[in-house]
Design a protein around this nucleic acid. Sequence first.
DNA 1: GATTAGCACTCGTTGATTGAGAGTGCTAAC
DNA 2: GTTAGCACTCTCAATCAACGAGTGCTAATC
Lengths: 344, 344
Amino acid sequence: MELGERKLLILQAIINDYIISAEPVGSRTVAKKYGMGISSATIRNEMADLEDMGYLEQPHTSAGRIPSNKAYRLYVDRLMKVKSLSVSEAKYIKEFYKKKTRQIEQLIFQTAKILSDITNYTSVVLTPQLNKVLIRRIQLVPLEPEYALLVIATNSGVLKDSIIPIPEGISPDYLNRISNMLTSVYKGKTFDEIDINTVLEMQNDIIKGRAFFNSLVDALTESITANEDKEVYLGGPTNIFNFPEYHDVLKAKAFLDLLEEKELLYKMLSKPEKNGVSIVIGEENEHEDLKECSIVTATYKIGDKVLGTMGIIGPTRMEYSRVVAVIDHMGKSLSNYLTRLFNK
Amino acid sequence: MELGERKLLILQAIINDYIISAEPVGSRTVAKKYGMGISSATIRNEMADLEDMGYLEQPHTSAGRIPSNKAYRLYVDRLMKVKSLSVSEAKYIKEFYKKKTRQIEQLIFQTAKILSDITNYTSVVLTPQLNKVLIRRIQLVPLEPEYALLVIATNSGVLKDSIIPIPEGISPDYLNRISNMLTSVYKGKTFDEIDINTVLEMQNDIIKGRAFFNSLVDALTESITANEDKEVYLGGPTNIFNFPEYHDVLKAKAFLDLLEEKELLYKMLSKPEKNGVSIVIGEENEHEDLKECSIVTATYKIGDKVLGTMGIIGPTRMEYSRVVAVIDHMGKSLSNYLTRLFNK
DNA sequence: GATTAGCACTCGTTGATTGAGAGTGCTAAC
DNA sequence: GTTAGCACTCTCAATCAACGAGTGCTAATC
């Protein structure tokens, strides 16, 4: 069967209406609200066709129809016109990026908050991926005679700091020398490229005490392999309650519990390597509890390097056109900001 | 009216039953389950008295009775026997504190998780309060020619780090000298005691560039006054769904939204300065959305210094005896751990 | 041949009614 | 002072009918 012009118009009308109302849309509603000079009976016939073609579904016989995942996919790929941001929204975002925040966590957190505030959906923003980040400096900072602080600074903020014990008789000056040496070896590399063996080879060279050496290697290894730093910031987690499809307590709990699984979120969102905005709709999600959700993601970068991802999660019936506009804008804003701040 | 022995027994029975069942308790139930050799009619009379005295409430005429806030207060103050932890629980906690975690955030986060896992309620743990924490070292770490990292190390981990721009022609060695000087001035002080004027006075002494000086003072001031560091970690936020009193979507949303208000939580929990476990029951809470909740808190310390607070939030009908046992134990465990790790 | 009016049919929603069950308070007997 | 007995109250769950939204089909119309 052909997917003619009129069918497309009707489908679009149904999707638009359903996105707003969350109620199955009937033929009369389409005829009246989106009056296109044809009667409800004609629309009924077309709707029956659209159902046969897999674009519409009927919850039960005497209800209207709701769009299928296939319909949403068609919608976002072909039908949807991306709205541009409202003036006040754009201004709100711009204002935010004016004030200098030096702490990257704060920045990411605020980004999540803005996303959820503007869209009224739940947002997720990943902190920069370690393996994309360049080491700038490794510094051992003396704290007390027995402890030193290992700081690893990168081109997107300080990513790691841990306290390591040091044996007696090691001077701040000596720590400084080690720091300089480590920095010279690893500067400009990513965490992926760090080879712990390089450190091991230094042993004979300038490292004095065994205990200290072990602590240092431990701390470094921990820094490199640590996945705790894969942090995920949420915005408006309870926004999901705004939608009637989540007025069910069990469903809401499942959703919120999912949001607590940071590793899972991280894995899911960091997948789309590709630049720009991408959309995953309903059943396309792998995770069971997300089969009724859609996720719109965008990446953010420093210079040309993709550092992380931000996403909006909401019911399949999502205001895609608005969400895409917002997240695209935010991705670019954050990238600009970071690039200005950290890129040389 | 007298609050005799038998009345207390009956009250206790009703509280115990209601804590488990969440259903109003009737006279027959008390007679049967907590058989104390008296008939349901007698118990009915006693219950009527207890209601007159304000210890019991009746949701409606033909329902059983539920304990009032006053009853819970009496219960936690006089009736309750604090259970000791189960062997497996104690072991679980002990195991956790065996493995060395050097990062304080990680530690706090895990503490929250353990609390909620063991109790099945929602837990809240505050990060150490800045004004209680002693500065150990202030260090400017050079990153690139134009940027340095300001690290403030304290006796409970690294609490602040921000990036500040530095003007040209300032050598790492010079940064080191400033660091040493700042450290010598502020070491052993708390953030409260820092007087920014002291820094201003140095101006004529060793500070060279105006721009740099301003950045430094800005960053320091930000560190001192920043309240972003008042972080709050949650454990098991959705545990609230376990309780029938929160099967209502609106109530649940209100509760979860409250948990997102970190500053508010911080203020509420950091109030009880006193050592040990304290309990706030239902109406005693100031916040409207907590009038049906109880909060059990304990403090944690380094040495003798109270650093922060942990809390369990649940419905008024809470298993106080178990919760008190758990949180008391956790408070002490965390204090021991921190003291061993950081106190000299 | 496409469109439309008309109509019978389906099915979920709403509101009223009803009976069962739980629990109480009171009275009178023990 | 305690208890058995009983009328009374109130909630909860089940049942049922009326309603309305929406459909699919048929026959008439453009």
